[in-house]
Design a binder for these strands. Sequence first.
RNA 1: GCCGGCGUAGCUCAACUGGCAGAGCGGCUGAUUUGUAAUCAGCAGGUUUGUGGGUUCAAGUCCCACCGUCGGCUCCA
Length: 652
Amino acid sequence: MVKVTLKDGTVREYPLRITLAQVAGEISPRLGKEALVASVNGRLVDLAYELTGDAAVQFFTFEDEEGRQAFRHSTAHVLAQAVQRLFPGTRLAIGPAITDGFYYDFDPPRPFSAEDLEKIEKEMQAIVRADFPFQRVELSREEALKKFAQAGETYKVELIKELGDEAVISCYTQGEFTDLCAGPHVPSTGRLKAIKLTSVAGAYWRGDERNKMLQRIYGTSFPKKSQLEEYLYRIEEAKRRDHRRLGAELDLFSIQEEGPGFPFFHPKGMIIRNELEQFWRQEHYRHGYQEIRTPIILSRSLWERSGHWDHYRENMYFTKIDDQDYAIKPMNCPGCILVYRSRLHSYRELPIRMAELGLVHRHELSGVLHGLLRVRCFTQDDAHIFMLPTQVKDEIIGVINLVDYFYKIFGFPYKVELSTKPENAMGSEEIWELATNALKDALHEKGMEYKINEGDGAFYGPKIDFHLEDCLGRTWQCGTIQLDFLMPEKFNLVYIGEDGQKHRPVMIHRVIFGSIERFIGILTEHFAGAFPLWLAPVQVKVLPITHRHLAYAQEVYGRLLKEGFRVELDERSEKVNYKIREAQLQKIPYMLVVGDREAAGGSVSVRHRQGGDLGSVALDRFIELAKREINNKALAPELAKEPKSGIEASAG
RNA sequence: GCCGGCGUAGCUCAACUGGCAGAGCGGCUGAUUUGUAAUCAGCAGGUUUGUGGGUUCAAGUCCCACCGUCGGCUCCA
């Protein structure tokens, strides 16, 4: 007998060599049906695993991360089986589970087409119906190498060769198909009920563009068809929030063929931009920053000195003036440094925080451009902090706090990453270690969770990155804090210390929004175009019911305009329903319907884009509440908070 | 930049295997005077289909190149 300790602490006894599938069935029929994989003493295993001693056992279903991953990974194997059936000679690379599904990289005789996907999907369904069990076999390195070399699976051979000595090499077989795999897998292909292949794309072997480009097939799978349908529906819904679509529908910005990657901001987009910038300025002055502005074109000698000429040239645009070489700035730091250097500074002045809304241009590969989220010119809400070495930690923490304060205003959840020394870096190992540790210390002091991105730092220093999500859950770097000991060296920056001698300051490069353009893109998707009142391009729209009410509507409109609202008046001879529909589609926060009743009482009938008809209220009261909502930068409407009777009671 | 898809009116889309380029929305004009998500009628709108070549009696449709765009890869704010 073996003693099995379950997740809830209960201990049960079972005969020796009982399989986990049997244990699950014993615990409950439902668990027997839904369990996909399990862990034994913390190690993930298949349900076919036989217990040979006392163990702590935990079962995982599709509801658990572990179960879901095994489910998707098993589907990837079925995909590979189908592909090898239909396209003999296709070599296999890797096929992991990802957040919402899985992919598999193939090296086929010819690229896959969209029609191929349908065929493959059909074949996968046949494999699911066949209900092949996934069978695990462990084998020695030699056996594995021989097996895959014979099969011509060169990528697998490469993978096996790289496995560590201690690694257990295992294969999984379903039907006629065998793949190298650590597992675990679900019991059989029949579990994979609902499968959808979503796209084909090129992907370099091991993600390195020097390697061969493989064909990657993406897909997803669920235990139930309804779950798959729900997922596909959710994706469609998410696409409705796409900032590129909303940007056109709400007339915020456009990108034209004449300027790929160079966005045009329309009047309504400019309002959002200007509100963001105004808020940004106010907060930066409050937090001890000064603002500067530096030129967009600067001479080659500056970029040589800063290191950009050597380390960043592929991303830069160049021009000539009077036969001299100039570059269009890809970063603001060299310009800012010139401002710092324009006079001598005392240690008493430090830290000096110089902010700049700087327009930078970077050459990005054509294939990566993406609406406002990846462009070739963008405005960084940049700042460079020059400080004493002793001030480093406090300054970093100050910036972390500022980022947090900003993102909370918008209600953005964010992820933090620490990026370390890249391949083409300037400077010594020691200096990089010093800088990286300073960033780590600050993060630890703040008790923040973060992920490390090896080799992802800027060429002049390591950085802390703040990532936000778009409508499909893809993350984009927005805020960043970069610690830099090198630029001060390159530019021979100094301050005069207490001792009257020259000393070297340390520098931080940082952005909060990151790029105003990208931030607006994220903002648009986050709010699905329904911006909070303080950002909404049009805050209020006045809708007279008939021509008869035009005079009063104009009065309301004029009053709101005078009070500083961004207000529009719909004077067209259309039905109210029509006007409302249009205002709704434009996601205008407040619609004020005015007719006989309102004209008589000096009131307005308030409709909120999300809250619907809120009843009638005195114009003065509406102004008061709307102003409060704007000043608080509220995320939820101020008026809808009041009980309806309260609004009506205050009507004039 | 690489792999694959796509490109027809301002927008969304149609035009069977090559055979005279269409509809809805939007716009304009007029009628209508309307109480919380689409009132009705008329008119205009394409230098003829992203651009340039080619095949063909005939090309939106087939072929090639380029541009743009979408999804990935790589790269990054």
